[in-house]
Design a protein around this nucleic acid. Structure first.
Lengths: 158, 158
DNA sequence: GCGTAGTCGTTGCTCCGACAAGTATTATGG
DNA sequence: CCATAATACTTGTCGGAGCAACGACTACGC
């Protein structure tokens, strides 16, 4: 009758926790796979590639340091290096050396990049709506926001 | 004033939708990455590998057809072929030919596989608790279940 | 029965992304 | 100042996973 016999505290998940976790895990995997397929089929893009275009588009001057881009897209620096290289070869992005730090590099969205994003966004947004947003009540959508924020709060720190 | 000028129906997400989607996307990426790191560090496993051990453990006789395993883990057949090959080389799984269908193959959990799962589960479960379950109210946990189910309902069909 | 169509699992190919090491540059501490 | 540490990006290497193609087998239609 001590600390570790509270019903939920064992080494396994109870049934409620288990179904929540599985439902979340499976649905998320399905959603991400479906979004990747949609972007690949309609725009020949990866979700990561798309995310990079979006983040650059939102940044002042369409320009971000590689490091910032890695932080925003939650990927590693090497991942960003390669993704930006791909985008550069496709003409959507150009590399611009950093003035104030000679190690630094900026990725800058080109006009072709903005065009590409404008062409890709509607299909992607439609998919996100159909598969996620339209399936949920407004209350669930706001719960999802809060759930995500709480997880981020835990995961940002460690 | 017709069907597509409802405020939420445009080609872009409104602010509420946008923050929900980003919070969900980012937190999920963080969580999956953290879980993968935890399993890699403490058990030298992938989340997929772990999932395979779990599904086999739950199956009668610790045995499943490759196809079933692919469906349950939401991966492709080729993915399962390779994951099972890895698990087989590690000694956690053995391949058993299927009696009633000579094309078929079963993956069967070995004793070593059960031991491996028993050794890996507590750390993984602890991580899931810390990062996800403990961050949420019971109400949010049940909302998460319902959200996942709704998405699955949409995505299972098409 | 027999041919055709579909299914099962595997393999070849290729892409994506993580980690670790390397180079160049900037920051720090004495 | 100068040596050391820390940071920014890149690259080498590797592992995981998707798609398409394949051989083996089964199921179906007639």
């Amino acid at each position: 009758m001590h600390e570790n016999d509270a019903p939920d505290r064992g080494a396994w998940l109870n049934e409620t926790e288990q179904s929540a976790w599985r439902a979340y895990l499976d649905s998320t995997r399905m959603l991400f796979a479906a979004l990747d397929r949609q972007l690949a089929a309609e725009s020949d893009l990866t979700l990561t590639d798309y995310d990079i275009l979006v983040r650059l588009d939102e940044a002042p001057g369409g320009r971000l340091r590689m490091r910032e881009l890695a932080d925003l897209t939650l990927s590693t620096r090497s991942g960003v290096t390669r993704a930006v290289t791909r985008a550069e070869q496709a003409g959507w992005v150009r590399r611009v050396e950093c003035e104030e730090d000679r190690r630094g590099m900026n990725a800058e969205l080109t006009e072709a990049g903005r065009v590409k994003l404008a062409a890709s966004a509607p299909g992607h947004v439609r998919a996100v709506r159909e598969m996620l947003i339209d399936q949920l009540t407004p209350e669930q959508l706001s719960q999802l926001t809060e759930i995500g924020r709480r997880m981020q709060g835990k995961l940002d720190i460690g």
